[in-house]
C-alpha cells in the first residue's frame, strides 16, 4: 500500500465502491485518498486497518452497506465492530480513535461519500501527525 495516500477507504463493492465511482466520476479520486474495493466490508480485518496505518496512512475508513442491505447479512456489523476494536488499540498506544472510522452508505450516495471523506480529511488535519505522510 503506497504511503502517499493519507486516507485508505475500504469500500464494499456493493455500496461504498459504487458510491466512490459516482462521487469522483468527474473530478477523479483526490490525491490523498486510496480506494480499496472489497467483496464485503466484513472482509476487512483488524490487521488490514493497522497495516494501512503502518504503511503511512493518516486515517482509515470502511464504507459498508446500510443495515439490512448487506449482501452477506452481517458483514457491515462485523466491520463496525472491527473498527471499534482497532480504535481501542490505537487509544492504548496513545493515538487518536478518530484515525479510524466506519460508515454505512448506499451505492447511489456519491455526494454523501465525498462529504464524509472531506469531513474525515478535515478531522485528520487537526490531529498530530502520528507517522502520517500528511493530509
Amino acid at each position: 500500500m503506497a504511503s502517499e495516500f493519507s486516507i485508505v477507504a475500504f469500500c464494499c463493492e456493493h455500496s461504498g465502491a459504487l458510491a466512490a465511482g459516482t462521487a469522483f466520476a468527474d473530478a477523479g479520486i483526490p490525491d490523498n485518498v486510496k480506494i480499496v474495493s472489497v467483496p464485503c466490508s466484513g472482509s476487512v480485518q483488524t490487521i488490514d486497518i493497522l497495516k494501512a496505518l503502518h504503511s503511512g496512512a493518516a486515517g482509515v475508513v470502511i464504507f459498508g452497506c446500510h443495515d439490512g442491505a448487506c449482501k452477506h447479512l452481517s458483514g457491515n456489523q462485523r466491520a463496525k465492530k472491527r473498527v471499534a476494536y482497532a480504535a481501542g488499540i490505537l487509544e492504548e498506544i496513545g493515538w487518536e480513535r478518530e484515525r479510524v472510522g466506519f460508515s454505512t452508505i448506499a451505492s447511489v450516495e456519491g455526494k454523501v461519500f465525498s462529504d464524509l471523506l472531506a469531513q474525515m480529511t478535515h478531522g485528520l488535519r487537526s490531529l498530530a501527525p502520528e507517522g502520517s505522510e500528511g493530509v
Partner: peptide, 17 residues
C-alpha cells in the same frame, strides 16, 4: 496467528519513532 500479527504491527506503530 491473527492476534500475533496484530500485536507485532501495533507495537511497531507504538514504537514508530
Amino acid at each position: 496467528e491473527r492476534e500475533a500479527e496484530i500485536l507485532a504491527t501495533t507495537l511497531e506503530l507504538a514504537f514508530r519513532n
